[in-house]
Design a protein around this nucleic acid. Sequence first.
DNA 1: GGAGGTATGTTGCGTACGCAACATAATATA
DNA 2: TATATTATGTTGCGTACGCAACATACCTCC
Lengths: 219, 219
Amino acid sequence: MKNYVEDLAQTALFVGIEQENIEKLLGCIQAKVVEYKKDELIIEEGSKVYDFGIMLSGHGRAFKIDTMGRIIIITLLKKGSEIGVILAAGSNHKSPVSVQTEEDLSVLSVPFDGLITRCKNNCPQHDRLLRNYINIVAEKGMVLHERIDCLLKPTVREKIMTYLVRVSREQGCRTIAIPFDRYAMSEYLNIERSALSRELSKMKRDGLIDFHKSEFKLL
Amino acid sequence: MKNYVEDLAQTALFVGIEQENIEKLLGCIQAKVVEYKKDELIIEEGSKVYDFGIMLSGHGRAFKIDTMGRIIIITLLKKGSEIGVILAAGSNHKSPVSVQTEEDLSVLSVPFDGLITRCKNNCPQHDRLLRNYINIVAEKGMVLHERIDCLLKPTVREKIMTYLVRVSREQGCRTIAIPFDRYAMSEYLNIERSALSRELSKMKRDGLIDFHKSEFKLL
DNA sequence: GGAGGTATGTTGCGTACGCAACATAATATA
DNA sequence: TATATTATGTTGCGTACGCAACATACCTCC
């Protein structure tokens, strides 16, 4: 456990808490480290989730399989990513997604009750932890909202622009690097990859944007 | 303030807290009642939001205006609805939506800091309140996720089915009443109203569903 | 009941975009 | 440098669906 504390200090959940206090807190909230093998399921679609997790290493993905058997990627996970934060805090707990590892990795697992229940030692760091947790849940909500914002746009061009403008605002610059390759971008915006490429080319021709691979410039 | 306590006891924020304790809490968290006139803005798009609200009466709507000047309804608000819960709890606070009243009404306004900061009296209800709040934020996230689930479906028919099946599961019955008229339903699923009607009719012809107005039956 | 208003259903037309198939560019492998 | 592999771009075709215009059902208020 101890060797993870340094990494945990970098996460959104423990931001603002000194490392020595993190160690104390971990016991307090009944956190434990769980190891997973490659391709193992951390969360199974339909199962009930009462613990949330923080990725301590490796990569994973949250996905679901729809009625036609298509795989739909919901999120990609890396070191520091949170797992099941909304689920554990909700009242239903039944997971709409599966979470699977892409390699051997370990996860810090925390029962939501351990987090929310005020410990007898009444440590002040607990407050900060709770505040951080609420913050994470809220930010996840914002991220979902932002995606809906793109999805609601009627045309491919507007979807693209909505997304690019947002990222540009976030990065405070008209030249931006996006965290997607074309395929992932097309999935995020719910467009065919080829249709996305087609429209991007048109937009370049129209002098709206310039781009090369994942670098975009708004004109 | 006092006369609202009974109503507040019915809300998700105060569930599980006895009325006499609610009254105490309200002072503790620095809640106040704010009156709004018809068509007044409670939240303005782009403004920073640090307080959340609970609708004490009347109706309102959360919306945004996109680049083409179209009005996009995000949520409809009624007595008991929460306002700005995710925003106040987030780290950015800048609102992507406007919230406007549809008539004269009043709102219980609570600074997020008042909620999250442990009061000196250290009242046990405060814990429950926090737990309820996290619950609300998480549920809002789930709701957004569910909508994305529909929006990601490639065809109108699949969007419709995804939505109806979910509501059917929620209500535990194959015959359901949905809270939308056709137009609202089409907006929620991001479909043209006429295209929605067309597909619904086809689905009825195909023996997939039956419906009359807002009553649907899955076959 | 009639008249106006709103919600819902129907239909023809045109096109944006899904789809498939191929072309080219970038990257890895040897 | 040649070769396989993967990312991205291009293009023709067909259709699902947006759009507009109209039809019908339902509701409300004289």
